[in-house]
Design a binder for these strands. Sequence first.
DNA 1: CGTTGTTTTGACACTAGTCAATGGGTGTGG
DNA 2: CCACACCCATTGACTAGTGTCAAAACAACG
Lengths: 239, 239
Amino acid sequence: MTPNPPNTSCLTCRLSDLCLPFGLQIDEVETLEIIIKNKRPLGLGESLFTKNEACISLFAVKSGSFRRFVMSADGTEQTLGFYLPGELIGLDALFDGNFTFSVDALETSSVCELPLTRLNELCAKIPNLQYQLTRILSKEITTNHEQMFLLSNNSAKIKVATFLLMLSKRYGALGYSHTHFNLSMPRQTIASFLGLSNETISRQLTALCKEDIILVNQRAIQINDLRLLQAIIEPCHNN
Amino acid sequence: MTPNPPNTSCLTCRLSDLCLPFGLQIDEVETLEIIIKNKRPLGLGESLFTKNEACISLFAVKSGSFRRFVMSADGTEQTLGFYLPGELIGLDALFDGNFTFSVDALETSSVCELPLTRLNELCAKIPNLQYQLTRILSKEITTNHEQMFLLSNNSAKIKVATFLLMLSKRYGALGYSHTHFNLSMPRQTIASFLGLSNETISRQLTALCKEDIILVNQRAIQINDLRLLQAIIEPCHNN
DNA sequence: CGTTGTTTTGACACTAGTCAATGGGTGTGG
DNA sequence: CCACACCCATTGACTAGTGTCAAAACAACG
């Protein structure tokens, strides 16, 4: 039941409403398309770029998924976020031209490459494009705040429930099922993202299974009762 | 030993290098200045705006300090960040025109008000201004990532030490002492920001005092040994 | 000088981390 | 096709670090 795969042309790409072309006129999209370079697909664990590297291009996820992370002093990797199709990677580098974290592929994945100098030229010419880029930057700030809110104050149960609901929502927005999906990352990566240990992730998932709220089989997640899952994170809602 | 107070004119304001005018020509700054409205100063606890309110203007902190927060379902306030002079408030609202959190003053404070429609007009005319706005947005994303990194994985001791060093650095950049400063917020607010209880903040501060690394007297902080403080957060450094 | 709010300190409970062992899948080579 | 190894996930036992609750000390203010 997957939607049509994304296309190499923005005009027919099913992700275009989530991505940079949103709000642009057809001729403007055509101009944007000219600067997009197609990279070969990346395999599991393959690096898109590493921290402190100079940013030549931004990337838009076309298919698959990516992980944003930094290395801690002790050599462990700290996951800071995930990128799903339609999302822009590398916005943090607009500040001084260097990436502030590393990104690698969680599965076989592909990206559209947007060379920065040409993107900047285009933004100067197409106000709608500049406007959309600003909107996407602003949205990322909001997403970050939500993540900070989650990390600050909540129990393992709420964190895990929120994580599942976040994926459900994002997959749903992409046209996939929001009750059946596969995690593209191991428990360890989820744990690192939520500030928990992988054992705790495991225990929380089995607890949710025993309550019949979800069904877990390895990486496969099935949400049986979306309402109950949302009820768990209720005390965490903010106004 | 405070520097000259910020001025109502950007051209003479000592914060202009941190703020929106950075990188602009003198005549461009003069054009920017025309749209800036001065608001009356806000007192302790006074609200600048609240979550979900429509964003009419962005704000630049001129003096004092502000707190970004949301209300949890149980009525407690969750602090998500602080704004010091020279920093821009409200960037999250560029996405859909509504603020995604509330901001109030931690002490008597003043802001420059930047009406959004006029700022957008100006950005279209002055590429350097648009560029600087993008840079500031991007920098905020990086700051958020650092905060997420801190919240995810670290002990109370590392969190508190990082918090003190963050303030030290930010005050230093403003031309104030980076070893002697006053906290403008109560323990409870620091606790909420770091995802800890106020008792834990208290205990960590007294522990640092007993090690002679800092000296605390209510809100007054004195850093005796910056090196030792940095050594505490060493394992938390990332590459 | 009393009232109020903030900070500190202590005692205790509990969540989640750590360490260790077990189980299950997947892939490779014989 | 099976045996083995490897990785990942699960489960259990124990522990450490924080949260919670309560009381006392302290500062600020009227």
